[in-house]
Amino acid sequence: MKASTADLQLLEDLFASPTANWRRFIDRYASTVIQVVQHARHCQKWTLTQKDADAVVVATFERLAENDLEVLRRFDNGGNFNTFLTVAARRIALQELQDRGAEQRIQTALRDDSAKRLQIPGS
């Protein structure tokens, strides 16, 4: 299935003027990215607060915007943009979730180690 005319037009507008059209892009595809993050979170059994899940959605959009929309520019106009975006967002979201999980494990280990060091010997 090919990309819709609306998808192609929005991408064309976005590439021509990212600043002017980024909000339109977010408005159109926010539900897709949110759904991808929720699904990835559920499948990977990540326990995140809503605030953390929202942060992953924001980080996903930030990564899509990086380097002059590099990821989005990889889209082949002959394909389905929604499928392309779903795959790209899933890869980004999984990386973000893994990074956040690793960061949480490090912080927990540091807290646990600090607590051990602060214990009074022999008590």
Rank of each mutant, 00 (worst) to 15 (best):
M1W: 09
M1K: 08
M1Y: 12
K2E: 10
A3P: 12
S4W: 04
S4N: 04
S4Q: 10
T5E: 10
T5N: 09
A6K: 12
D7K: 03
L8P: 01
Q9H: 13
L10N: 03
L10Y: 05
E12L: 10
D13V: 04
L14I: 09
L14C: 06
F15G: 01
A16D: 07
S17A: 14
S17N: 15
P18L: 03
P18V: 02
P18K: 02
P18A: 01
N21L: 00
W22G: 02
W22D: 02
W22T: 02
R23L: 11
R24W: 12
F25R: 01
I26V: 15
I26E: 03
D27H: 11
R28K: 15
Y29R: 00
S31M: 07
S31W: 09
S31F: 09
V33P: 03
V33K: 02
I34W: 04
V36D: 00
Q38N: 15
Q38R: 15
H39M: 04
H39T: 09
H39N: 08
A40Y: 10
R41I: 05
R41A: 05
R41L: 09
H42D: 14
H42R: 13
H42S: 14
H42E: 15
Q44K: 05
K45P: 00
W46G: 00
T47W: 05
T47L: 08
L48E: 08
T49A: 10
T49M: 07
Q50R: 14
K51P: 00
D52G: 03
A53W: 06
A53M: 10
A53K: 04
D54A: 13
V56G: 01
V57G: 03
V57F: 07
A59Y: 05
A59N: 10
F61Q: 03
R63K: 14
L64C: 07
A65M: 10
A65F: 12
A65D: 04
A65H: 09
N67T: 11
D68C: 03
D68V: 08
E70R: 10
L72R: 07
R74Y: 02
R74G: 08
R74C: 06
R74S: 06
F75T: 06
F75A: 02
N77G: 09
N77A: 13
N77I: 12
N77W: 06
N77F: 08
N77R: 14
G78Q: 13
G79Q: 11
G79D: 13
N80S: 12
F81Q: 01
F81E: 02
T83W: 08
T83S: 12
F84R: 09
L85F: 06
T86C: 05
T86V: 08
T86D: 01
T86S: 09
T86H: 09
A89M: 06
R90F: 00
R90T: 11
R90I: 01
I92M: 07
A93I: 07
A93K: 05
A93M: 05
Q95D: 14
L97T: 08
Q98R: 09
Q98Y: 06
Q98K: 07
D99P: 11
D99K: 15
R100F: 10
R100N: 13
E103K: 15
E103L: 14
E103F: 13
Q104I: 10
R105V: 05
T108P: 01
A109E: 15
A109S: 15
L110I: 10
D112K: 13
D112F: 05
D113N: 12
D113S: 14
K116G: 04
R117I: 09
L118E: 15
Q119I: 02
I120P: 04
P121M: 08
G122V: 00
S123E: 05
